[in-house]
């Protein structure tokens, strides 16, 4: 992996790279507590579809049930909830770029 970028990668970024973005971050209040729900898309772009899938899978494995320390909060879960239906894209040189990614949810309270 050559880089991790928020939103999208710069024009000349080398493949493969990963982009991530926050989809939704609602707060759920339960009396005195608040549950933070972060929904994050993470997508790997590669010239090679197999490589994209492998990296995506590696990311999913690493993130599954990962515990992220948030000050004042306890991680409830960190799971991949969806695989994104992404189709191959074409870059400026006309070469194909293969995305693979999923949505992850992190709940803390």
């Amino acid at each position: 992996m050559t880089g991790i970028h928020e939103g999208f990668a710069p024009e000349k970024a080398d493949y493969p790279f990963l982009t991530y973005s926050l989809v939704a971050g609602p707060y759920e209040y339960n009396w005195g507590d608040v549950t933070l729900i972060a929904q994050i898309d993470a997508t790997v772009y590669s010239r090679n579809p197999v490589e994209a899938d492998n990296l995506d899978q590696a990311l999913a494995t690493w993130l599954s049930d990962q515990s992220f320390p948030v000050t004042g909060q306890t991680t409830l879960l960190c799971r991949r909830t969806t695989t994104l239906p992404l189709s191959p894209d074409q870059d400026d040189e006309g070469e194909k770029v293969y995305p693979a990614g999923g949505t992850y949810e992190i709940w803390t309270y």
Binding site: G7, F8, V23, D41, T43, P99
Partner: peptide, 15 residues
């Protein structure tokens, strides 16, 4: 919703 290589995503359905 999901973005692509050129454009950042602007999710609206899921939020």
């Amino acid at each position: 919703e999901f973005g692509n290589r050129h454009n950042p995503p602007h999710p609206f359905m899921r939020p």
